[in-house]
Write a protein that binds this DNA or RNA. Sequence first.
DNA 1: ATAGGGTTAG
Length: 638
Amino acid sequence: MTFFFPLSRNLFTTQTIRYYTSAAVLDSPFNLLHFLHLSATHESLRLTKQAHARVLSLGLTQNPFLASKLLSLYAFFGHLIESRVVFDSVKEKNICLWNSVINGYLKSYSFIEAFDLFCKMGHFNAKPDDFTLATVSKVAGEIGDLKVGNLVHCKSIKTGFVLDVVVSNSLISMYGKCGEFEGMKKVFDEMFERNVGSWNALISGYANAGDCRLGKDLWEVVKNMQIDGVKLNGFTISSLLPLSGNEEVTRRCDYGRELHCYILKNELDSACGSDVHLGCCLIDMYSRNSKVLMGRNVFDRMRFRNVYAWTAMINGYVDNGDFDEALVLFQEMQLRDGIEPNKVSLVNVLPACSSYAGLMAGKQIHGYAIRKELSHDVALCNALIDMYSKCGSLNCAKQVFENGLFCKDSISWSSMICAYGLHGKGEEAMCLFDQMLLLGVKPDMITVVGVLSACRRSGLVNKGLSIYKSITNDYGMKPTVEICACVVDMLGRSGQLDRALDFIKTMPVEPGPSVWGALVSASVMHENLEMQDLAYRFLIQLEPENPSNYVSLSNLHASSKRWNAVAGLRKMMKERGLRKAPGCSWISMNGKTHCFYVADKAHPHSSSIYEILDDLIFIMKGAGYPTDFEELTQITSY
DNA sequence: ATAGGGTTAG
């Protein structure tokens, strides 16, 4: 059995701490401040607390320099209460102190508290300055509240701080995050003086919009930036890298590699602090473009890897189906670098349990999440529901869904509905869907696909069709190709092939491969040769590059012994240079996963496995089961 | 003398 959570190592030895405590002479405010600086560079809460104790015992609580550094540090460690206590205990609060405490809340994602304090400044006769406005503008962007954003903008104009480059940059970013692109452009255009950050804020605004129309503006901006003589830096590139793979916006096939070259040529990867982040973006870009090995290359060359970098790499492997390597890295992250996974790491690695490592690994991750008090996170709970249902434990999935420790979103409902569907419990899935609607949770496309799949698996054709009608009529949703494929599958499986074909002809979206594929499987199931041929013709027309279509069709011909047709298809595949990646099966035993391909003799116990297989076939034949093993062998070992 | 801000993530 593999353990994914080794004991954590304490990277801070007692000697180091003793060194720092003895090296600093902690009797003057200046030395204490220096000591706090050391606590910050070593990210040590313990040293921070020692400094705090010293501040208290020397009666230096009213020193504004010490107080602001102390409260910032507490906020950095997530100790917001201590941070607030330090702030509250200072009687004469200067503007730096206000800015530090508001920024502390911002960095700890406590946006409402941050804004609340900003609003209270007036009662204390404190006037916001450029630092305050830049910070609160970011707060508005983070919560995506345009009203708050406009308020900060007005205040900046009134006080004249809008002339400060950083304040304006922050406003640009805020408008971008609120989706108010006109406002964003206006702030930028009206700027009196701009720096690279101004351009970056504008570019990231357009880049994150995910809107092709704005994508055009984006390239204009990048061009104008260069005309203006401002060089692209690490921030710029990391905004542009996530667009690689989006053909609509980039219109270039090797766009991601171009940006990678730019990084190397301009040595942006060695610029202090930005190399980790750029590395993450590169890994992500390569994984998204199915070049996970290129991503690994970047990962291996990074001089410093944080939890983001490890998680990006793990996610790359999971997305590309290499679950084994993902799990190896998940362990190495902890063993080699002593880095603890956070909730995103766990969410990303859970699909590897569903598909590869199995229930026990998934349970370990669940246990770890509970110990680290991460099990209230909705994304993690959703991933757990999904994992448990795919690992065969509907009960555990139900327990996570029903325990009420997290705030359910539409994904939680969808995951549980899908779980019931996967386990053949159509009635329960329908029931949950109704409950969701009653509670006013808005279903999305995924929910509908989930409930329709559940219906088709359980043969609830009429109920499925009525749901289909109600989502279009009552909820005004435009059905997606996937939803239509579900309907085709539902009708097809129940034997209503002609009705399925009629549906395809009248459905509101262009039928894609999934739709014809559903009709193919249904017509195979019901042995309707005419329909099979028809559906396959559309499928191959839509996906001439997908080898699976040819192989399936050829297998179909083989099953009815039409060998000429088989040979013709195989020839066509060869001419088009298509090869199908072989499928495989695997089984986990005693924590080790064994993988098998067709006619695979690579396993060390191969001969005894085949012996048992032969015995089983013999027994099956004896028991009168119909067997076409000869034919199967003929097809698969082709 | 010493403190506080913006543009980037999985």
